[in-house]
Amino acid sequence: MNETVTVVVQRVMPAPPEVVFDEWLDPEALEEWMCPNPVRVVDVTVEARVGGTVRFDVDDSGTSVLISGQFLTIDRPRLLRFTWSNSNWEDPTRASIVNVTFDPVGTDETLMSIEHSLLPTSEFESFHGGWIATFEQLAARLESAVP
C-alpha cells in the first residue's frame, strides 16, 4: 500500500511577499538556504516557467542525493507549486507535491506556508524537521539582507 503523508510548516518571514517569493527562483539564493544544514546544495537548476525543471544536487554528509521536479504553478508573489522526487527514496520515481504560499503580513513581512503532500510515510519526520530548519535558514538570510 502506498500510504502518503503531508507536512505543513508556516513561518513569518522578515520581507515582503515579492522578495520572499523570488528567493525560491534564485539559484544562488537556493544554494545558500535550501536544505537543512549540514546538508548542502552543491548545484541548482531552476527553469522558472510552468513545466520547467527544478533540480537540486545535494551533498548529505558525503552522500549525493538528487532532488528533481517540475513547476506546476508560478503565480508571483502568491503561490509556487512544484513536484519533488528524491533519488534516495525507496521509489525514486515517486513524485510528491510542494505548495508554497506567500501572504502579506503588515507592510514588510510575509506568512510563508508550505504544504508538502504525497510524501512517503517514512519521510514525515525528516521533511517536517527539514522544512522547519530550512525556513529558519531563509529567515536568517532575509534578516541579514534588511538594510
Rank of each mutant, 00 (worst) to 15 (best):
R81G: 02
D60Q: 11
T63G: 01
D91Y: 06
N2C: 00
D103E: 15
L79E: 14
V44Q: 09
M112N: 05
E143G: 10
F56K: 12
V44G: 08
M13Q: 15
D108Q: 11
S64T: 15
P104Y: 01
E47K: 07
Q137C: 05
F56H: 14
S126I: 06
F135L: 08
S96P: 10
T121N: 06
G52N: 06
E23W: 08
A140L: 08
G129H: 10
V54T: 07
A145G: 11
L66A: 11
L138C: 04
L79R: 15
G130E: 04
D57Y: 05
Q10G: 11
W89K: 00
E18P: 13
L30Q: 07
T134K: 02
P120M: 08
V105H: 07
V12R: 09
S61V: 12
S64W: 14
S87C: 02
S126D: 05
I114P: 12
V50R: 11
F71T: 01
F71Q: 00
S87N: 03
N86F: 12
T83M: 07
R40N: 09
D26Q: 03
S85P: 13
T93G: 11
S117V: 01
P104G: 03
M112C: 14
E125K: 10
V12M: 00
D75K: 10
V8C: 06
V41P: 01
E28I: 02
I132S: 05
G51T: 02
W131Y: 07
V5S: 08
S87E: 03
T6P: 05
A140I: 06
Q137N: 06
D60K: 10
P92C: 02
E109I: 02
S85W: 06
V44N: 08
C35E: 04
T121Q: 13
G52C: 04
